[in-house]
């Protein structure tokens, strides 16, 4: 899974009037190219993953999935997702709130820094953590003295994943909160609501779809992250392998059926996320339009 940069919902709707539209030939040509490319690059591989996985029969497929190492990879992946989501939700909310609703020095710097994980290669993200927490890293000797292991252990994997996924919620919420403004919150405060009640009853309901969208993107990326995790993991089978790493190992060992079986699990997760994403995206779009109407 490559970078999941959110396409901005809120683009102008396509208006189809005879005067401004292209001739039918060009229209069909463009649609044909788009659909053909999509089919060739996305649909066919998707089908290939599942056919490859089920090629040798259901029994082998199940055995590959139920292999202890595979199950351990599933557990680690789910743990990583489960830690990354709340952390990045809280961070994203705080950052978006600060950026959209306050004026302060260093705001632009903060916005730029939020985008940093998008800008650097995940491999570099992994290396950053190795250089910090590795045996020869800055904090390595101290950690070793405390008996703490971060690199080549689940904490390192979680850290790397959190780093790579932290822009999603914030990026999603900043424009939404900007367009919503602060006036409803002010109204709630004046009516006597405490800060917490204002957040719970006013802010959160207004941003819930945007927040959910950010969370979905975060979880998709957290489950599928390969580069950063690969650097910090150490590839210890059954201990520090997430699903993508497990697929790679199986593949490198020429266990193609097993590799594709596990890959199909990941793909299935991605497809489910995609459907959820589309539904939420549609909701966010609606809300943005409403906010702009006001």
């Amino acid at each position: 899974m490559s970078d999941h940069i959110a396409l901005r919902p809120g683009a102008a709707p396509v208006t189809n009037t005879v005067a401004t539209t292209e001739p039918p030939l060009i229209r069909w040509l463009l649609i044909g190219i788009a659909l053909g490319f999509l089919g060739l690059m996305l649909i066919v591989p998707l089908i290939a993953v599942f056919t490859k996985a089920l090629e040798a029969g259901m029994a082998l497929y199940l055995r590959a999935i139920l292999d202890p190492a595979a199950l351990a990879a599933v557990r680690l992946t789910l743990l990583t997702v489960a830690v990354a989501i709340p952390l990045n939700t809280i961070f994203g909310l705080a950052a978006a709130w600060a950026i959209a609703k306050f004026e302060f020095k260093g705001k632009n710097l903060l916005i730029t820094l939020i985008d940093l994980p998008f800008a650097v290669s995940p491999v570099i993200a992994g290396l950053i953590f190795v250089s910090l927490f590795g045996v020869k890293g800055l904090l390595g000797p101290w950690l070793a003295a405390q008996g703490l292991k971060i690199i080549f252990a689940p904490p390192g994997i979680i850290l790397a994943t959190v780093f790579v996924t932290f822009p999603f919620v914030a990026r999603e919420l900043i424009p939404l909160m900007h367009s919503l403004g602060t006036v409803e919150e002010e109204a709630a405060l004046i009516l006597g609501a405490s800060g917490w009640k204002t957040f719970w009853h006013i802010t959160l309901p207004n941003i819930k779809w945007g927040l959910l969208y950010g969370v979905i993107l975060t979880s998709a990326r957290a489950a599928g992250e390969f580069g950063a995790v690969s650097v910090v993991s150490g590839h210890i089978r059954g201990l520090t392998n997430t699903l993508p790493l497990h697929v790679e190992i199986l593949y490198n060992e020429y266990q193609f059926v097993a590799a594709f079986a596990v890959a199909s699990l990941l793909t299935l997760m991605a497809v489910i996320t995609l459907v959820a994403k589309s539904i939420v995206e549609w909701k966010v779009q609606q809300q943005l339009e409403e906010a702009q109407k006001k």
Binding site: E184, A187, I190, G192, H201, E290
Partner: peptide, 27 residues
């Protein structure tokens, strides 16, 4: 404890008319 009416009303968009009116008492 002042009442304030905003220029563009600032009604809570996810609440009905009666929920909007009740808000100050409910919180």
């Amino acid at each position: 404890h002042v009442g304030f009416v905003f220029q563009h009303y600032a009604l809570f968009r996810h609440m009905t008319v009666s929920e909007n009116i009740a808000f100050g008492l409910k919180v």
